[in-house]
Amino acid sequence: MLKQILNAIEQRQISEKECLVKSQVNTSFLSDWKNGKIKSPPFDKIYRIARFLNLSLDLLADNTPPPSQLPEPEQFLLNGFRKLDQLEQQIILGKISEMLYQKKNFEEQRLGTEQVAGNLLSGLDCTDAVGSGKKD
């Protein structure tokens, strides 16, 4: 349980102290637990930390995820992600960030192109072009 909490803290790139402060748990709790001063951590402290880290109590208690409401493709991805070591997870997260960045840039470029085209078209008066072909 301690290892899972410490991994979650590390993955979120926050300090143990920040986690404990935001969880409203005394800041020596994790150190005391790691050093063996606490053998059976109080449930209320585990609950507050798990809630702050968005960790499932089921997962903490017996290392099995709770039944999920995610669609099957998302469950597949999540289960595969959980089987990877931390470095592999960081690589996957980096790739996803890169893909999202590229998608955002592509959409911004497309919207910019559409806006320019719209501005150009709005400057043309199609009735003038048709009207200029009139015979007097």
Rank of each mutant, 00 (worst) to 15 (best):
52 F>R: 13
103 K>S: 09
133 G>M: 15
2 L>M: 05
104 K>M: 07
12 R>S: 05
22 K>I: 01
58 D>W: 02
85 D>N: 15
34 K>E: 04
101 Y>G: 04
71 P>M: 03
43 F>Q: 09
38 I>M: 07
7 N>H: 07
20 L>S: 00
101 Y>W: 05
83 K>L: 14
49 I>R: 02
67 P>S: 14
90 Q>P: 03
134 K>H: 09
85 D>C: 05
132 S>R: 12
136 D>T: 15
113 T>Q: 14
13 Q>A: 12
23 S>L: 01
136 D>N: 12
17 K>F: 02
73 P>V: 02
88 E>G: 04
126 C>N: 10
40 S>P: 04
90 Q>W: 05
6 L>E: 15
133 G>D: 11
73 P>G: 00
48 R>D: 04
53 L>M: 07
133 G>L: 13
9 I>M: 02
55 L>D: 04
81 F>R: 00
117 A>E: 12
24 Q>M: 06
27 T>I: 06
74 E>Q: 13
57 L>D: 06
44 D>R: 05
97 S>W: 02
57 L>S: 01
41 P>C: 00
130 V>T: 05
8 A>G: 07
50 A>I: 01
114 E>D: 15
55 L>A: 04
135 K>E: 11
96 I>F: 10
44 D>Y: 08
10 E>F: 06
61 A>T: 14
110 R>I: 12
22 K>Q: 11
50 A>S: 10
74 E>H: 05
44 D>T: 12
96 I>W: 10
19 C>G: 10
63 N>Y: 07
2 L>C: 02
3 K>S: 10
39 K>M: 06
15 S>V: 06
100 L>G: 03
54 N>Q: 13
74 E>F: 04
97 S>Y: 03
86 Q>R: 09
129 A>I: 14
61 A>K: 06
126 C>G: 08
10 E>T: 15
69 Q>H: 14
102 Q>M: 07
118 G>F: 08
45 K>Q: 12
5 I>A: 00
92 I>M: 04
114 E>N: 13
70 L>A: 07
50 A>F: 00
26 N>F: 03
84 L>K: 00
86 Q>F: 03
127 T>L: 10
85 D>Y: 03
102 Q>H: 10
22 K>C: 03
68 S>E: 03
58 D>E: 11
2 L>I: 06
90 Q>N: 11
6 L>M: 15
52 F>L: 13
131 G>T: 08
89 Q>E: 06
50 A>Y: 00
44 D>K: 08
60 L>H: 08
21 V>E: 05
61 A>S: 15
110 R>V: 15
89 Q>Y: 03
64 T>N: 09
84 L>G: 02
54 N>P: 01
77 L>R: 02
82 R>N: 14
126 C>M: 13
7 N>T: 10
75 Q>G: 01
123 G>E: 14
37 K>Q: 06
80 G>L: 09
47 Y>H: 15
67 P>D: 14
76 F>C: 04
